[in-house]
Design a protein around this nucleic acid. Structure first.
Lengths: 316, 316
DNA sequence: TTTTGCATTTTGTCCTGGACAAATGTTGAC
DNA sequence: GTCAACATTTGTCCAGGACAAAATGCAAAA
């Protein structure tokens, strides 16, 4: 029942470190046992007290883990080496030129200063200027990468990353709400596999498809497979679209998608997008793999022309 | 590394129960040790496997804890008794008549069906109809109570409660964004004490004050006291307004507020709102306790007339 | 009567060190 | 190159002990 109102802090408690780094208490304790790091001081009661340097290093390690490295290969390295690894990874991540680089720099700066209202207004203006679809492709998508880089570099922390997500969601939601039809075709059920979060990706897909007259219903994240099937059948949907982010293990994604494909009526198409399924089309028979947001529009056009063909030549 | 993609579930694992009930793994284990409930089955590996009935009962207990009861007084009771207690508590919570009862019923129903887009649209229409301030007082505030009741009664679950918060935030944020000035007076810094969440309360306060020409900057939740002081001084603020929800221990709130009052320049007013500080004005010298949202407008008028007096009679 | 101070109980969190299975990496056969 | 079998790494769970913050009850003072 410790309640640290103000933390005079020659160190942080294990709960604070869990919040700061995203590494669970169990993880922090088991690493200490296995690798000898982190090795926190103790308060009068024997509770762990992590010095700021160790917390900083844990943050670096956390970012490298997100990039796919494994704990045993990074916990023993010193902070300088870790920072160098992150730096090279960050530059490798976005080699391609970003035409609106200056604009995006300005948005990141607003985020860094936590000026949430101004960030929202700036985003909204870009939306008005370019329209919903181009806003998602040319602004939100590159910004996601930029925010990821800034977080890796330590320029922003979790709270600011969350603030970014929230403001983008606000802007996208109101835009989608303004355009939403209730009786178009196809009807698309958007969701993710269980244990997957990644709500922003779903929203970006919705923002891309809704202006084309598709009716999108988002089932939210964390939906069990059986619930997806039930909702798809009873809601008169034409397409079920899943988003599988990189954080989700690719093998589970493939298994889950094949399970879902088998459980779903053949008349309902199954689309899958996201990092976890890229290049896995061969192992996903009957699943339309979506490469990126523009490809979702291609898939939509394909569905429509297939529908037209079926109508002009019924029961061929 | 258990990853339950689909849970055939003759029971839920401890992680799933933690997510479902909001009771931490430590709590679940220590209650089992102390009170003999819950007493889950075990899988082949000795891991806890909670049968659905026990999870249901845990959910009831959780709601009663939120109402202020203590674990020892409820864990031993049977499910029927718990449900009865919740029911009487729910009816006792809102004795006063709600003039827009029917409208609010409809909104709750939309929430229960997870029709998020329609909920957002309905909220937005009410906002347009009544204006921002009345919308907050007459719609959002009673709806908060209704949602709380529905959650107690088990009509809605955590996901739906979250969805409600999100949609209300969307609507309020865009309305505030549309009205926000950048150079009015007073300049108000809105935030909460560390370890307090309650973002919706802040937003409601902002929505009440912004239409009066005040400039509100929200520092977000979880801000350390020193940071509040720095931000208040360097940002040229006239007022610092804190929100302290009922979930926050009253004693900590009083201590924190007095600390903050001492640390803050005398020229900057300190306002405190929320359940935790009601009736505690006597123990908070130099702090303006805000009773409810309309009272915030009274406080604002008082500040302005005090300012006028100071200007017409400078250096009295 | 209402508040204030103190003793007692309740309660949540943290601790250690062990265990195991899922995830990942590696090797070798086809 | 693909796939299976094997080895290693890694996250989560377990038990049961400990302790301090929070809540409660009760006395004395205002």
């Amino acid at each position: 029942m410790q309640n640290k109102l103000d933390k005079p802090a020659e160190g942080l408690g294990i709960t604070a470190v869990e919040r700061d780094t995203g590494l669970s208490k169990d993880i922090l304790r088991v690493w200490e046992r296995r690798y000898g790091f982190p090795l926190p001081a103790r308060d009068h009661n024997g509770d762990r007290l992590y010095p700021p340097e160790q917390v900083d290093k844990l943050r670096l390690i956390r970012r490298l883990l997100d990039l796919g490295r494994r704990p045993s290969s990074v916990v023993t390295l010193d902070a300088g080496t870790l920072a160098a690894m992150l730096d090279s990874a960050a530059t490798a991540l976005a080699p391609e030129g970003d035409p609106d680089s200056a604009t995006h720099d300005r948005l990141i700066e607003l985020l860094r200063l936590q000026r949430s209202a101004e960030l929202r207004i700036a985003l909204h203006q870009l939306l008005l200027k370019h329209g919903l679809q181009r806003f998602v492709c040319d602004t939100v998508a590159p910004l996601n990468i930029r925010v990821g880089q800034a977080w890796m570099r330590g320029d922003i922390d979790v709270a600011e990353e969350h603030l970014y997500t929230e403001q983008v969601q606000n802007v996208l939601r109101s835009a989608i709400g303004a355009q939403a039809a209730t009786d178009g075709r196809p009807r698309i059920l958007l969701t993710t596999l269980p244990d997957e979060l990644h709500a922003l990706g779903l929203l970006m897909a919705e923002a891309t498809l809704v202006p084309e007259g598709a009716v999108c219903v988002s089932l939210g994240t964390q939906t069990p497979i059986t619930d997806i099937c039930n909702a798809a059948s009873s809601g008169d949907f034409d397409i079920v679209a899943l988003s599988c982010s990189a954080a989700f293990p690719a093998r589970s994604a493939i298994d889950g998608l094949n399970t879902l494909r088998a459980a779903l009526p053949a008349a309902i198409e199954l689309w899958a997008g996201g990092q976890a399924v890229q290049g896995k089309a061969a192992r996903l028979p009957g699943v339309r793999v979506i490469a990126d947001l523009p490809d979702a529009l291609v898939a939509l056009a394909e569905w429509r022309s297939a529908q037209r063909a079926a109508i002009s030549r019924p029961r061929a």
